[in-house]
Design a protein around this nucleic acid. Structure first.
Lengths: 192, 192
DNA sequence: CGCTTCTTTCATAAATTTGTGAAGTTATGG
DNA sequence: CCATAACTTCACAAATTTATGAAAGAAGCG
């Protein structure tokens, strides 16, 4: 096969270590990493994340560039393109990844958002907003001047409070991060 | 109604409004409230909450005292005692409710924790701690001095940061709440 | 302009989850 | 010390969810 530019998918030829047990995985994805991805995904799943989305997300996190193509994901996670499709759609919806096209190819790449945690917090913010509205609705349903109504109003107030705090937290994080002075997002090749 | 003591479960006799559609529900749990409970539970479920636990939790929130017995929950939610058992066990494990016994009866009551949100945040804190450890593990697996390793270290750092912030947030919430000067948790009977 | 390659959609099959009834256990009350 | 009432555990049935293969739909390339 002539390949296109990125000639990085001939995994069967590089596995010189003989039968690894975990079949033919790419060189930069040994079984230890695969295991970690599953553990990471399990943590995420326990917190309510969709299983496939969690696995894809974890797989992207441990990838060199924070970006992989559909074929690469399928190879590493051993799932069908259909499963990838669903997972990346969801991850895109909640703004954890963005999709991009390699110029010379029709292959799409899914990339972790630059500041995933900022996006994650924003996502959380929307959840809080929703809960706030639900609680307010409930207060009206049961009557605001009842024990349950007051409880629901307090819930709504707490949500509002948390929303307000979120912005400040992210500002503080950026400041905190600046102090650390370690631009981790950018990989400057020296590692390879 | 005499209420209290155990003699409060003769719902069929109090539905004088004729066929309500939603069968025989207790007087303080009209169908509008039941609908709201389902909506509330749906929000919680969307965020990863177990379904039954979410329904029980929501039902407790809209109850007058923030506490209900197993039988009352079963009647309102139309689920079996077995389902209740599982849900309250989970809610107890994550410290959202406590269980208490009515002195004169062998009936148990499940009560929302006084400050549910404080408990919820504590719960969240443990999740963060777990993610932090997972991320650190991952950094070692892929190598700390690699792009992926640095990404994982940043993730761990972010978790640490959030953990630190949580305490401050709760302090601020209590201050904020003190300003509002509305002790919502305590219901002083005047509503009935 | 059609071929090739990748992605998405859809129906199906499998697996997991979920809630129930019934038996078992604990604890109260006479 | 037995009878009773409430809660819990267990195995099973049902429903939902989950992932797949195959076919259809885009999009570059020759």
């Amino acid at each position: 096969m002539t390949m296109d530019q990125p000639g990085s998918e001939a995994p069967e030829e590089v596995t010189e270590g003989a039968g690894r047990g975990a079949a033919d995985l790419p060189a930069d994805y040994p079984s230890e990493v695969a295991e970690f991805v599953e553990r990471f995904a399990a943590d995420l799943t326990a917190a309510g994340f969709q299983r496939m989305a969690a696995r894809v997300f974890a797989c992207l996190v441990v990838s060199r560039d924070g970006a992989l193509s559909s074929a690469e994901l399928a190879e590493r996670l051993r799932i069908s393109p259909a499963a990838i499709s669903g997972a990346v759609r969801y991850l895109g919806q909640i703004h954890l990844i963005s999709r991009e096209r390699e110029p010379g190819s029709r292959r799409e790449r899914y990339r972790l958002h630059q500041s995933v945690w900022y996006e994650a917090m924003t996502q959380r913010d929307q959840t809080l907003k929703r809960w706030e509205l639900t609680a307010l609705t409930g207060a009206d349903v049961v009557g605001r001047d009842t024990p349950a109504g007051r409880r629901l109003l307090e819930t709504a107030a707490f949500m509002v409070f948390l929303e307000e705090q979120l912005d400040e937290i992210m500002e503080r994080w950026h400041a905190h991060r600046a102090v650390a002075a370690t631009p981790l997002e950018r990989d400057d090749e020296r590692g390879g």
